[in-house]
C-alpha cells in the first residue's frame, strides 16, 4: 500500500459526512439525489480500500463495489423519473413544497 489505510478511511468518512450533510440540508430533490451519489461513492472507496488491505480475498470487495455502482445508477434513474413526474404534476422540485400528504 502506497498510503496507509487510515488516511483513505478518513477521506471516505469525510466524503460520507459531506454527502449526508447535503442529503439533510438541501431543499432541491435533485440536490438530495446528488448527495446520495456522494454517500455511495464513499462506501465504494471503503470497500476497495479494505479489499486491498484486510480482505482474505481481494476480489470480493471489487465485486461488491460493482454491484453498489449498478444499484446507485438504478437509484438515480428511478429517482430522476419520479422528479420529472413530480414536476409535471406539482410544478416544483422543492421537498417542503410537496406537502399534499402532510397533515
Amino acid at each position: 500500500m502506497l498510503i496507509p489505510l487510515q488516511h483513505i478511511l478518513i477521506f471516505a468518512a469525510g466524503l460520507f459526512a459531506i454527502g449526508l450533510y447535503g442529503a439533510l440540508v438541501r431543499r432541491n430533490v435533485i440536490g438530495i439525489l446528488i448527495s446520495i451519489e456522494l454517500i455511495l461513492n464513499a462506501v465504494n472507496v471503503n470497500l476497495i480500500a479494505f479489499s486491498r488491505t484486510t480482505a482474505l480475498n481481494p476480489v470480493t470487495g471489487q465485486v461488491f463495489a460493482v454491484i453498489v455502482i449498478t444499484l446507485a445508477a438504478v437509484g438515480a434513474t428511478v429517482g430522476l423519473a419520479i422528479v420529472l413526474a413530480l414536476y409535471r404534476v406539482r410544478r416544483t422540485i422543492y421537498t417542503d413544497e410537496v406537502n399534499l400528504l402532510k397533515w
Binding site: M1, L5, Q6, L9, I10, A13, S51, R52, T53, T54, A55, L56, N57, P58, V59, Q62
Partner: peptide, 16 residues
Amino acid sequence: FLKTNWPVSEAALTPV
C-alpha cells in the same frame, strides 16, 4: 480509524 490496529492480509496484496 487512527486508534484501530488494522490487520494486513497477504492475500489482499495480489492485484485483481
